[in-house]
Amino acid sequence: MSDPHAGFIIASYALTGLVVGGLVLRAVVEHRALRRALEQLEARGVRRRSARQETAR
């Protein structure tokens, strides 16, 4: 791209990529951490009331 304003265009797309990438990354990382926390809690025998009823049945 030989446009004199190429820097501005690249900067716009790069920033958008960064922000969107950040949102995606945050969602994925949070999801993993929360799943792990839930697994650990369940391994320690802490269950939600509804989940306990299901296993009792």
Binding site: V24, A27, E30, H31, L38, L41, V46
Partner: peptide
């Protein structure tokens, strides 16, 4: 997609929170 993922995370976060409180 991000919104659905965020909602899923938020539900899980509330579960973790209530389980911690129960424990």
């Amino acid at each position: 997609a991000l919104h659905v993922a965020g909602m899923r995370n938020e539900i899980l976060r509330r579960r973790v929170r209530s389980l911690w409180l129960m424990e």
